[in-house]
Computed example of a mutant assay.
Amino acid sequence: MSDNILSINLATTRQQWGFAEAVDGCLARGITAISPWRDQVAAIGLAEASRIVRANGLRLTGLCRGGMFPAADAEGRQAALDDNRRAVDEAAELGADCLVLVVGGLPEGSRDITDARAQVAEGIAALLPHARASGVPLAIEPLHPMYAADRACVNTLDQALDLCEALGPGVGVAIDVYHVWWDPGLAQAIARAGRMGAIMAHHICDWRVPTRDLLLDRGMMGDGVIDLPGIRAMIEAAGWNGPQEVEIFSAQDWWQRPGDEVLAVCQERFESACQAR
Rank of each mutant, 00 (worst) to 15 (best):
G242S: 10
V177N: 07
L216G: 01
A238R: 02
H203S: 04
P210Q: 10
G224A: 06
R192G: 02
M220Y: 06
T211E: 13
D183Q: 08
A191Q: 12
I190L: 06
V177Y: 03
A237G: 07
Q188D: 15
V209F: 11
W181C: 09
N241W: 00
I235M: 02
L216N: 12
A201S: 14
H179C: 05
A237P: 01
D183G: 08
M221C: 14
P184L: 10
N241D: 09
H202S: 14
H202T: 15
G222Q: 01
G194K: 12
R212L: 15
H203Q: 15
L228C: 06
G242F: 07
D217W: 04
R232K: 05
A237T: 02
P210H: 04
G197A: 12
W240D: 05
Q188M: 11
G242P: 04
A189H: 09
A189F: 08
M221H: 03
E236L: 07
I204A: 15
V177A: 01
D206E: 09
V209Q: 15
D176K: 08
L216R: 06
G222I: 01
G197W: 13
H202P: 02
A237V: 00
D176L: 06
P210Y: 09
V209N: 10
R192K: 15
W207C: 05
I235K: 01
M200N: 13
D217T: 11
M220K: 03
A198I: 11
P229I: 01
D223R: 00
W181K: 02
L228A: 12
L214S: 07
I204C: 14
G230E: 07
L214K: 11
C205S: 15
D213H: 15
G222D: 01
M200V: 08
A201N: 15
G239F: 12
L215W: 13
R212P: 00
M234E: 06
L216V: 05
H179W: 02
L214Y: 15
T211V: 14
A191V: 06
W207H: 13
D227L: 02
L215M: 15
D176F: 04
R195K: 15
G219T: 00
L214Q: 12
L215C: 14
I226K: 01
G242Y: 10
L215E: 11
N241L: 05
A238D: 02
A233S: 13
A198W: 13
I204N: 02
A189T: 02
D206W: 10
P229E: 03
M196D: 05
A201Y: 07
G219N: 00
W182Q: 12
A201I: 13
P229R: 06
D217Y: 05
I204Q: 03
C205Q: 15
I199W: 14
L216W: 12
I199E: 05
A198Y: 04
R195T: 14
P184M: 08
D183M: 04
D206C: 07
R208G: 11
E236W: 03
G222S: 05
G230W: 01
A238S: 04
I235H: 04
P184C: 09
V180K: 10
R218L: 05
M200D: 00
L215F: 13
A189R: 06
W240H: 07
M234K: 01
G222A: 03
G224P: 01
V177I: 05
I235L: 06
W207G: 00
D206I: 10
I231N: 03
P229M: 07
R192I: 08
G230H: 01
M221L: 13
D217S: 12
L215S: 14
V177E: 00
R192V: 07
G185E: 14
G222F: 00
